[in-house]
Write a protein that binds this DNA or RNA. Sequence first.
RNA 1: GCGACCGUGGUGGAAUUGGUAUACACAACAGACUUAAAAUCUGUCGACGCAAGUCAUGCGGGUUCAAGUCCCGCCGGUCGCACCA
Length: 873
Amino acid sequence: MERYNHRDAEPRWQKVWDEHNCFSAKEDHTLDKYYVLEMFPYPSGRIHIGHVRNYTLGDVIARYKRAKGFNVLHPMGWDAFGMPAENAAMERKVHPATWTYENIAAMRAQLQSMGFSLDWSREFATCDASYYRHQQAMFIDFLEAGLVERRLSKVNWDPVDQTVLANEQVIDGRGWRSGALVEQRELTQWFFKITDYAQDLLEALDGLDRWPEKVRLMQQNWIGRSEGLHMVWQLIDVPDNISQSTIDLYTTRHDTIFGASFCAMAADHPLAKQLAEDNPELTAFIQECQRTGTSEEAIERAEKKGFDTGIKARHPFDENLEVPLYVANFVLMDYGTGAIFGCPAHDQRDLDFARKYGLNVLPVVIPDNETASTYYVGDEAYLGPGSLGNSQFLDGMSVDEAKSCVADRMEAISLNGTSQGHRTVNYRLRDWGVSRQRYWGCPIPVIHCEKCGTIPVDKSELPIKLPEDIAFDKPGNPLDRHETWLATTCHQCGGPARRETDTMDTFVDSSWYFLRFCSPHEEEVPTDLDAVNYWMGVDQYIGGIEHAILHLLYSRFFTRAMRKTGHTTTDEPFEGLFTQGMVTHETYRHDGAWLSPEEVTIVSTEDTRTAVRADTGEAVQIGSIEKMSKSKRNTIDPDDIIELYGADTARLFMLSDSPPERDIIWTEAGIEGAHRFVQRIWRLVNEAAAVMAPRADAPQLELEGPSSELRRASHRMLDAVSSGIESLRYNTAVAQIYEYSNTLAAALRAQGNGTDPAWASAVREGVEFLIQAIGPMMPHLAEECWSVIGHDSLLAETPWPSCEPALLVDDQVVIPVQVNGKRRDEIKIAKGAAKEDVEAAALGADGIQRAIGDKEVRKIIVVPDRIVNVVVS
RNA sequence: GCGACCGUGGUGGAAUUGGUAUACACAACAGACUUAAAAUCUGUCGACGCAAGUCAUGCGGGUUCAAGUCCCGCCGGUCGCACCA
């Protein structure tokens, strides 16, 4: 028998599937649908192993659901805008569009060589004008619905690249590309008002019961709801040139209000800025605050610093209590009101600050084992529960009682005619700044007209296409310098106007592509409501955990915004979410330089494992196992694996052993093991084909008799594989298949060339089940085997077989018997046997008799069909 | 610092969700076939013990007839957030 030749079989079956149009989703909206989607790739040039894992995980469920009779939508596209294309343009003098579309072509071919069951007829790239024109139309819809705003905002500005950087692109205070010190700048930016949906996005997390708990928690923390009190304090000794006589404070610890010993506002608080105008010292302090980096380290090391403004703030419940107002470096302008009262005894930052400036530290929440008069707070603020003390009318209350009492009183008393406080809810979530000063993104469809102001373009002018003739010879946004593109006419007044040169954050592109897949060729509007109604939401979405917040939260917001503007009918885009682990590999170093796996030979002996350079034989240091990355040079090229071992082997390796949510370590031994199993299945099927019942014969399947044991194993395997796939526990499904192939091989060996027609039928059934079970995982091998056993039809078009329930249950069960919780023997007994019979059988077993000896039996616990425990004293 | 998750053989991992701990695989070892190697097949494989058995799921307690699984406290690791008042 010839070895299975993947080089021949894989392209052949891919062609057949393509010719039969096996994987295009049907436009029949009366069928049960299943929408499975993996996060679409950025066309960086080549697919990497992480893609192979991602799309394999999705393809298994797609092929399985198709076999189960669902109308499956499994599309693919390209998240094609972004910085790398511009970097390539600058480095290699190639147009971003050329670079991107060439990469797409190369990567499409790679994905096709993996045999993924994708509906390529729905493919698009987000940089296609036919896609982004609809994004522009929706931007205008959002603007009209009040979901978009243009306002001044602080941004990270890279002075060398002359662009805004996202927080993630600022490393240790420097631009990730240029290495230049990042400046804080105020720029007019476009924002999506995601904060309008903060409460809804938070509450709806509860309904996402097929999302990982971890991701829901991360989003919950990111949204960061806190319930607090907004209040107004009177200011005293305000300089004459300042009109402000009160300050707005925000707190969540209003119970500690009698412990307040100072107030503090952010360095960029409007009052601080006003005061700084004629105060050089304060100006210098504010500048110092702004210089402090935003990196984690900088914040951790930064000392609490303040500047006493000389102004006093009057305590709302105690006219005689006046506390100093500081400008402080640890107060954030963009949270709450940008100003706080400090209660040092019960907040660590306030305590550090108070100790530095010699401010009063008065404990007001007294732990149960302390008394108010003697309780001393040292260098650690007390954050725990207790009863109020040193707090006038609050004394004796719990923290919660005191909070609600303070809130009631503040709401009741008035200052200058309005209530001095009100309960309020704050979120950490910020509005989504979508402006990017880049060329390779979706142009924001807005013009600036001297007469009419900043207005959206008329929808009839869409798409606002990117100009093609651009140069990347200078840093910054080339759109700013493209005069013929910039100059336009205002559609309202007919006067001259200039185009907006900001383009949209690429996260906008990926926030609705899953909706576009439902009707990718719709020209008039972004989505066909009929199609969206039928296909959405995505039943199973699969991607990396790194998108737990940004992409997944933006998409949830965008879907809501699209619903509000009439482009879809549901709020939640992804009903099921699965976050897969990374693919990792060992790292190798020699003389400080990283070496790729091909440059290294591993030398293994019985108990050592070392590495040498493949070319020179010099010793190589084996480093830690890390995520595959170009910088560590520990990547594996999927093309090499497909060529050497085949797509099915690569797919099997991705599915076996490690649970999909966990990181998987790529090893040569592992991929070879997977390849051996591919060959083993091939041999097994061919051997079985020689002895099993021919296809033409009427099957002579029996529920009892000699062949039923094999049949039980077959049906149990199929059942276990089905549930393993449905719950995405692919590693256990693969283990079932391994185990079954051992069983089937042993059965063939035992029976020899038996001629019992019932047995031959059972073998045929078992082989067919085996092929069906591997179908979603190793589709080419399965298709080849399917034809070997005499089928003319395609496995890809064959329904999933159903199990015979009678074969899934045994009429006899083996149950372990314990004595005092330790297993001593086991008994074989009829399933569902009466308790008394089970007890009798258990007590009769040799091992049990021996273990009991002369001790007294006190109790026998029988868990039906499970276990027996004999308790002796 | 706060929050979440995880610690099971030499290795990846399984365990019906409180009911036979270590399925399946990798590695290793022994054997068969072969002139030889590869491939393939067979067997062994948590520790100690000749055995009966004893001990083993990071460590220490607890609940229970029964704990890898539940509770409390440590230790170690991974991830997320982080001056959010």
